[in-house]
């Protein structure tokens, strides 16, 4: 499979960047998208060029490290699939693929396709927790949680913190991320005492970090 890749190259946070064209002749349909980039990088290194920097770790779609824009879509075109789980069989021989970093002022670019998503951590630090000191917990069965509540909490808690919602949102808003955590903790009886405070503090920090407001565009989901 032959591909033309247009990749955003940027040496550092305050450096100018641009899309650079690369030809890759030996991709194949069994590779994952990141393995395809690995192959490109090996070739660049052998040619004495700087390999493309991108963040990744688990390559199983769970750690949330990976993520960039593929042809204008966060994590590419497959719904519910992170870049590391995207496979090349969804592309065709001869395709041109544009790779850009997630763009938001709250996510400064560190290098090439790698951005700093620390703003999301600040939101959690502001209130995304239940204050329960280690060792103070009562028996796990002392509070029963209806299955539906537990399931709702789980669905919200499954957020992997990848930041794709921010990247996709026309407003650069992290409201989906924020509300996921609020819903997770708020759906559980353990989490309700701190609920109001949590919401205020998390939303405040969300705004302070420079994320945009949500206007329910629905791109983030």
């Amino acid at each position: 499979m032959r591909l033309t890749l247009k990749i955003w190259r940027q040496a550092g946070p305050d450096q100018p960047g641009q899309l650079v064209d690369y030809q890759l002749d030996n991709a194949n349909e069994h590779m994952s998208f990141l393995e395809m980039l690995d192959v490109l990088n090996q070739q660049l290194i052998e040619k004495g060029e700087d390999p493309v920097t991108f963040e990744h770790d688990c390559r199983e779609g769970i750690c949330g490290s990976c993520g960039f824009m593929i042809n204008g879509l966060a994590h590419g075109q497959e719904k519910g699939t992170t870049v590391c789980q995207l496979h090349m069989r969804h592309f065709q021989d001869g395709d041109t693929v544009v790779l850009e970093p997630f763009r938001a002022d709250a996510f400064p670019i560190l290098k090439d396709l790698m951005v700093d998503r620390g703003g999301l951590d600040r939101i959690i630090e502001a209130g995304g927790f239940i204050s329960a000191r280690t060792g103070s917990a009562p028996d796990a069965h002392s509070v029963l949680v209806p299955k539906d509540d537990a399931d709702r909490a789980f669905d919200a808690a499954a957020c992997i913190g990848c930041g794709a919602c921010v990247a996709a949102c026309p407003n650069g808003s992290a409201m989906l991320f924020t509300s996921a955590k609020v819903t997770h903790l708020g759906s559980l009886p353990q989490g309700s005492p701190e609920h109001t405070q949590r919401v205020l503090r998390m939303v405040n920090t969300h705004d302070e970090m420079g994320f945009g407001a949500c206007s329910n565009h629905g791109e983030c989901e």
């Binding site: 955003w8 899309l19 824009m69 042809n71 204008g72 879509l73 544009v98 850009e100 763009r103 938001a104 002022d105 709250a106 026309p170 407003n171 650069g172 808003s173 705004d207 420079g210 994320f211 945009g212 407001a213 206007s215 329910n216 565009h217 629905g218 791109e219 989901e221």
Partner: peptide, 26 residues
């Protein structure tokens, strides 16, 4: 609100596709 969101992405994408949102929302 619009002002906050305006400043949230000062450098725009070269390529950006939208799947959900439409003209009226934007």
């Amino acid at each position: 609100v619009k002002r906050q969101s305006r400043t949230a992405r000062s450098q725009d994408y070269a390529v950006k596709k939208n799947l959900e949102t439409g003209l009226s929302a934007r």
